[in-house]
């Protein structure tokens, strides 16, 4: 990657990679801290959106300055790499760990996480095996292909992902099906009545109305 950008000295490459790792760590921590405030969907959409934009920029810069030995061009390319990985680490890194356990219900969490693991490794294998050929054959156009694929991912998240922010695991369950037991009240309506002043006795009566439906 750095070779494509025009940095060929191994020592400089190493330096850049070390700083990149630190930078990614900082962004990932910042993103994790903000995940609950921003919401998962916003975090994913902003992160994916900005990193795709930087990806297109990177494609352009690599195409123009990649082999030319223009120092300004090389610096520009490297700064875009930093911005790309920053955007990625800010949202996608924390979500990788967070989102699946949140959307999976208790009884399928183990299976779901196992399958997610398989899916992640499979995608990893695809990237490791296919992309070097792609890079050597079509060079910077690989970035354009990948960034365009990201647009599909973005649309998928926009239309399909559910927001899990500010919800208990039980409430998230309720988003997927209403056959699972839900207490008669959720936290939102609760906050409304709390102001009015409901005594706990009464609440416990209404809260026990639970429908145990069959899941089939």
């Amino acid at each position: 990657m750095l070779t494509q950008a025009g940095v060929s000295d191994p020592h400089t490459q190493l330096e850049i990679n070390v700083i990149l790792s630190v930078w990614q760590l900082v962004c990932a921590i910042a993103g994790s801290c903000l995940a609950e405030r921003l919401g998962r969907r916003i975090l994913a959409l902003v992160s994916l959106g900005t990193c795709s934009a930087f990806f297109y920029l990177l494609a352009g810069l690599t195409a123009k300055y990649g082999a030319a030995g223009n120092p300004s061009g090389t610096y520009g390319t490297i700064s875009v790499i930093f911005l790309f990985l920053g955007a990625y680490s800010f949202g996608i890194t924390p979500l990788t760990a967070m989102y699946a356990p949140e959307v999976l219900s208790y009884n399928m969490r183990a299976t779901g996480i196992a399958l997610q693991g398989i899916a992640i490794k499979s995608c990893g294998v695809l990237v490791t095996i296919a992309f070097p050929y792609m890079l050597s054959d079509i060079g910077w156009k690989t970035y354009v292909v990948n960034a365009s694929w990201n647009i599909f991912m973005w649309l998928f998240i926009f239309f399909k992902w559910v927001e899990t922010k500010d919800r208990t695991l039980e409430e998230i369950d309720g988003l997927f099906d209403d056959q699972k037991p839900e207490a008669g009240l959720n936290m939102k309506t609760l906050k409304d009545i709390e102001g009015v002043g409901v005594d706990v006795e009464e609440l416990s009566k209404s809260g026990t109305k639970v429908s145990h439906g069959e899941t089939s």
Binding site: F84, L85, A100, F131, W161
Partner: peptide, 18 residues
């Protein structure tokens, strides 16, 4: 939704770039 995280994490480009 759980599985969609996999391509999101691996195929967004961070693996090509680093």
């Amino acid at each position: 939704l759980a599985l969609s995280v996999a391509p999101l994490a691996m195929l967004t480009g961070s693996n090509i770039i680093t």
